[in-house]
Design a protein around this nucleic acid. Sequence first.
DNA 1: ATAGGGTTAG
Length: 656
Amino acid sequence: MKPLSRFKCHGMPFQIFEPLVSRSLLGIHFQRPSFCSAAAIEWRTGPNIPSANPLINEFSSYCYQWDLANAMKALDSMQKYHIWVDSVTYAELIKCCIARGAVKQGKQVHRHVFSNGYEPKTFLINTLVNMYVKFNMLDEAQALFDQMPERNVVSWTTMIAAYSNSEFSQKALEMLIQMLREGVRPNMYTYSSVLRACKGLFNLAQLHCSIIKVGFESDVFVRSALIDIYSKWGELQAALCVFNEMVTGDLVVWNSIIGGFAQNSDGVEALNLFKIMKRVGFWADQSTLTSVLRACTSLALLELGQQVHVHIIKFDQDLVLSNALLDMYCKCGSLEDANCTFNRMVEKDVISWSTMIIGFAQNGYSKKALESFEAMRFSGTKPNYITILGVMFACSHAGLVEDGQYYFRSMKKLFGIDPGREHYGCMVDLLGRAGKLEEAIKLIHAMEYEPDAVMWRTLLGACRVHRNMDLAECAAKQILKLDPDDAGTYILLSNIYANSQRWEDVAHVRRSMRDGGIKKEPGCSWIEINKQIHAFILGDKSHPQMDEISRQLNKIIWRLKEVGYVPDTNFVLQDLEGEQSESSLLYHSEKLAIVFGIMSLPKRKTVRIRKNLRICGDCHVFAKLLAKMENRRIVIRDPIRYHHFHDGACSCGDYW
DNA sequence: ATAGGGTTAG
């Protein structure tokens, strides 16, 4: 028996011999040398450093092959014979446990490396702490962290990153302070993870300052984390500053800034940056394309979205990206493409289903939305807060009062989701649409939430449809209390007064608007022709083909009048653009955009318009008649709903 | 060994 050379021993007399080995088929029988009982030994092994101990060689090779089952068997024997290996090999095994989600095995490794007086190194404990973090077992991670005799920057960063990503993000900041007090210096890893735990701009500025002070601001990880958190707080200019200071950036930094603009509904800037990114020579990945799709979605750019779709095909199917694509098709009003995308998805999560349900509902296909919901329940995917909103939206849109009430009342019992403010909003919409204005008001007063401006606007919408001036006045006043800058509501209120010849009240409203410096946003409609966006703004004649468009519009109106179209200047409760004379009504931006679309697009192609304000009643009639006369599909997306005009009817069922 | 970017409503 010859002694082995590579080992370390903690404080006990030792003499190590190779165990006698006899190999059977599976099991390995070891003879335990009695004199190495409680000795804590660390063997240095590794893929290329064979040990003279065959058990260790077995174990280590299983670890590096990620053969979890056999590694655990070998670990058992090592436990029995009080043998330990080096930290790197354990770390490999732990990595394998993390990748496989093997909690039980991971805990076993944990027990093993703390057994019989063995003292694992900081490195190894860090790996175990990280394992518990990855298993989302923060309490275990914290307990292990607390009992560490020595904590280095990695130990701290592991915990800080864990808390930053959790609901206890406050704890991440506290730990950063604690870490500084104990004299451990944070590194780039620490800063890039703690940034997302910021509780506000002041906090963020403090962190940003210390990052500059220690010179980490040029690290790409820190930079992208900074850009990301500034955009999450809506500070796009600050994000852009951080971005522009960069000399050699990477793809993720680009993705951060593009995503920042896309998420803050600045699709134009997001697409602009995307263009520059490509020019500089970066290839888009799934994350980039997801943000680009989101930009297309907010701008209703179907054709650009379709181009992105072509690029997506070269990647393996990606759930988040597919969901974004699905949403793009829904929001651009192309339900056929959305449905097709949905059916082709190999993996669907609650967001995929919700997107599809909401897509059907917003585009006026309530029945299909409810069918999808049933299919979702059948598939076993659990609905969430937003799914139920989509379902209730579908019910209110189709006038399914009882179904909507059923889902509202039983959502807690069936799906374990408490009705939130938005669900109440849907109920108000549902009741209001059905003409049950009294019940809607009762619900608003009975709910446990304070009604907000959105809620009152919903009620106001119902008042407009059911022509209830008194309640409309009350709702409008409530809205202005909560949102005094809402120009549309001022105009509506003034229209209500004008209609009842309450001129003093009209003057009062106008005065409040003037005093408050509130200007109504001009109506604006966009249409995409050949990847170019054409914008039409009420009263703006700068479009190069404006003369031809006006001529065509007049011709169309003339022909429509022959089949019974009467420009309706009396949309007191409808006209949010606040222009009631016939001439201005005739030049509402959506009419110009529709006519331009008909002029420029090939014959059968659907005319797709996006609008910044709700569509007025007159334009709605105009579009319905024109769709029939020209045998064209026209889709108008306003800030809330979609109108699919076809054959003299609209998918909204004249309710919006 | 520890770190950064993407999807559903409003």
